[in-house]
Amino acid sequence: MTGHADRTERAKRMEHEDQTEQPDTAERMGETGGGAWLLETVAVSKRYARDGRPLHVLDRVSLGVREREFVSVVGPSGSGKSTLFRLIGGVERPDEGMIRIAGRDVTGKRGLISYMPQQPSLFPWLTVRQNIASALVIAGIDRKRAAGLASEWLERIGLGDTAGAYPDELSGGMKQRVSFLRALLMPRDVMCLDEPFGALDALTRTRMQAWLLEQWEAHRRTVLLVTHSIEEAILLSDRIYVLGGAPTTVRREIPVPLPRPRRPDVWNDPAFGRLREEILALLGRSGGRDD
């Protein structure tokens, strides 16, 4: 949990950011096409051979994320969202199309994004601090600074007590906070969150969404979130790409016209409900599995 002192500090920071960020936010909401993409998938297609039969997973999927923007990709389970991330991460190569970061073709290149998977994926033999530091060292930060950063930030998000604990001593929600912090601290331009709360129970999930919103409002990193939860996408995002069909294509790109900074109770806003209906309709209801 975030400490009280931390909360007030964050409130101050947000106030400050509120003033400086306002024009930027307005511009972001007003404009959806064009602009300088920080991360971009350009007409990306992917096919697999499954049981000898070709399986067309992604069909010319084009989407983009601007700097300091929170973008979600929503689609039914099994719509190739994780495949999309593997392509962006460079673990696999698309059959057609390319991945660009800051305008540069980085198709098949690894180590350019920070990543938060669905499972916390913490190393059981490392403490919380070591887990974070270890990832930072892989990302090229020197050992001493990595350990310092890990300790400092664990304190900052109110997890200072857990720095020396091992992952099996933490609850599911705490593990995901650590996993998020690990992704946040990676010195990369884009954070890719792959269903980060998909494995949590409904209550923890709701809390974690509010927490992530709070963290993002405070740090404003460039985020691409994959989720099958429509509410989660609306709550957190500036824009939403709705995926669907087989093979998967981008059904529509939807800007979220809710003001920033956003509060977790934003779902009371009538715009929230309208957006939810729109996306549900796009997913054909049956596809919009949600919890």
């Binding site: 991460g89 690894r110 180590g111 920070s114 990543y115 994926s121």
Partner: peptide, 19 residues
């Protein structure tokens, strides 16, 4: 899962082996 995580953050073969 850990293997996939290391692949996604760009760990080298040697890093995957050692860590």
């Amino acid at each position: 899962q850990l293997r996939e995580y290391l692949a996604m953050i760009g760990a080298s073969r040697l890093q995957t082996f050692l860590r």
